[in-house]
């Protein structure tokens, strides 16, 4: 018994936390959870009935007089009722799928799956607001996600809020998320997409609508970069702007994540490391030790004051107070 208890601990640990779809932090997750419980309880009832009937049949004396009823029992229990149940479940599942993939939402967020990070673009009031690896959503509003991929098939999933949906090269898929609890919920790629697939994650921060509007306005603003910032000088000298964009500067690289407000994000490396100076320095100098196969080349020659200046500069790319 004690061993059994010990075995269940890690299983139960999976039932809590920011990645748990039973946490039910979104309207769409509620729908899927409802279907799950009906399936689970229904399957348990049917399984018990079948096993019960088998045990009953084993213990009972054969009565040839009941052969006729037994045949009809098999026809109804084994064919007619399962067909009706499967048909009902099919329709129910299809209706849920239809409802979580609408054409319109209160706001639109485009997410492009890259190997192995997320390019996120909000349809802001004054045009596109580009960010990466962190998604913020307003409470009780339906966000319509337009999902694409440039390379391989990814799958966009925020288990606690709803989903998931494949991101298919050459196509656009849609998914609605309507969070109904504030908090920080984990998101991940749910389709194996190559070496660092397991490290392709993101934070989903659900905020009050006013706070979200303020955040979006701050995210839309260009970066505040002093012309003589020594860190920005390193950024330029090392050619970082060839891949990364910092709005408000001449760095317009479209390849890697937008860094305009990278310092305002909680994590780096696509949701896998805390945004600290140590992690940022290591990310720049030893990228592949932190994320194998990442496209970004490491800069092991950067060290000392230059590295420190670059890290300080990147972390300073925060929102204006």
């Amino acid at each position: 018994m004690r061993n059994l208890t010990l075995l269940t601990v890690p299983l139960l640990a999976g039932c809590a936390g920011r990645h748990n779809w039973l946490s039910s932090a979104g309207a769409e997750a509620d729908r899927v959870e409802g279907l799950f419980w009906v399936l689970l309880i229904g399957a348990a009832v049917i399984w018990s009935a079948v096993i019960g009937a088998a045990v009953y049949a084993q213990r009972r004396q054969v009565d040839p007089g009941l052969e006729h009823q037994a045949r009809w029992f098999i026809v109804w229990g084994g064919a007619v009722i399962p067909t009706v149940l499967v048909c009902a479940l099919l329709i129910w599942g299809l209706v849920i799928l239809r409802d979580i993939t609408p054409d319109k939402g209160d706001l639109t967020v485009r997410v492009d799956g890259e190997r192995w990070w997320w390019r996120v673009t909000y349809d802001g009031p004054d045009g596109d607001v580009v960010t990466a690896n962190e998604i913020r959503l307003p409470l009780d509003q339906t966000a319509l996600f337009r999902l694409t991929s440039d390379d391989v098939i990814h799958s966009f999933w925020v288990p606690a809020i709803g989903g998931k949906m494949d991101m298919i090269p050459g196509r656009e898929t849609t998914l609605a998320l309507t969070p109904n609890k504030t908090g920080n919920w984990g998101g991940l790629c749910a389709e194996y997409c190559g070496g660092a697939h397991a490290l392709m994650r993101f934070d989903t921060v659900v905020m009050e609508p006013d706070a979200f509007d303020a955040w979006l306005a701050a995210e839309a603003a260009p970066a505040r970069v002093a012309p003589d910032d020594p860190g920005f000088a390193v950024f330029r000298d090392e050619g970082c702007g060839a891949c990364h964009t910092i709005r408000g500067t001449d760095a317009r690289g479209p390849v890697g994540p937008d860094l305009t407000h990278v310092g305002a994000r909680a994590r780096l490396g696509a949701g896998i490391y805390a945004m600290t100076a140590d992690n940022m320095a290591r990310w720049i100098t030893d990228t592949h030790a932190m994320k194998p196969d990442a496209d970004m080349p490491p800069y092991p020659d950067l060290s000392g004051a230059r590295l420190e200046a670059l890290v300080t500069f990147l972390l300073s790319l925060d929102h204006a107070e």
């Binding site: 048909c87 099919l90 329709i91 299809l94 209706v95 799928l97 239809r98």
Partner: peptide
């Protein structure tokens, strides 16, 4: 019938 149903849901 199962093939036809999705067309009427979506």
């Amino acid at each position: 019938a199962f093939t036809v149903i999705p067309g009427f849901v979506f």
